[in-house]
Amino acid sequence: MDRQTPVQRFQQLLHRYPALGPAMVLVVAIIVFTLLNTRFVSPSNLSLITQQVAVVGGLAVGQTIIILTAGIDLSVGAIMVLSSLVMAKTAVSSGLPGPLALLLGLVVGAAAGLLNGLLVTKLNLPPFIATLGTLSIFTALALLYSSGQSVRGQNMPGLLTWTGNTFSFGGFQFTWGVLIMLLLYVVFGFALSRTAWGRHVYAVGDDSEAARLAGISVNRVLLSVYLAAGVVFAITAWILIGRIDSASPNAGADANLDSITAVVIGGTSLFGGRGTVWGSLIGALIVGVFRNGLSLAGYDVLYQTLAVGVLVILAVAVDQWIRKGRA
């Protein structure tokens, strides 16, 4: 290869490690916000950020594996809300024990994911259209099922709100929900990088025809991805119940776009085949750090939204630039 300029070398480095750019942004953001207000790095504030990030961070795991297959899921928030209502209502109204109610919620999440997967693989719908449809369907089902009413946490079995309980670790206050979210990252980080399934997910997103000719059953991979994502969204529903101490049909309004934002800022390509779940965790943290840091620095909430918008555009622009760098 010919001599490269430092810019080209940097471009290739980003290409090789898509989470590197977001990680640098996160570090710089933490330094800047600390300079603006030293309270930012206090253990209590950092603990708060992790709790604020837990729900979007959980959803981003499922969103990442779908986007890696060059798909997208617009129904993530709706699946989460529907699952959380099933967990809460079957426990409170029908009197099911906590573990059973939780399990039922997980089954509903899995079924919702499976439906998305079937629409994409059997009816050959573009994921954008399929999940745009199911977004409305799941939202309506959640509203019908709950009659538009929230279920309060104090009425639920302790298991369902357990994800909101905190534990101390080295001066930090983490919730169990944060731990579950991190566990999701460990599980899917491992599956994507260390198993054949993970390789197949990347191969399908990269070039599905090449994957087919290599002997991979593309539809089976896609179906498994949407199904696994559905379960992830339902587990996030559990985290959500603990976080807001209730199950509400209106809780997931921003969750769809926030999860996509986290994935995109985290360096995963919307064209599929490139990115990691760890990038999405960093992406979710960046959004959390910007919102929290700007608010501590005394900026209006509208500036937080503005900042997130700028971040998304920058992230996708950088992705395009990196893709041009393909040798």
């Binding site: 390789r199 197949h200 191969a203 290599a214 002997g215 991979i216 085949g273």
Partner: peptide, 21 residues
């Protein structure tokens, strides 16, 4: 195949064993 059934983002070893890891 003519259109080169390889996955660009995966490394050489992964491509060699794609589908029969």
């Amino acid at each position: 195949y003519q259109n080169l059934a390889v996955s660009p983002a995966l490394d050489i070893a992964s491509n060699m064993y794609l589908g029969r890891e």
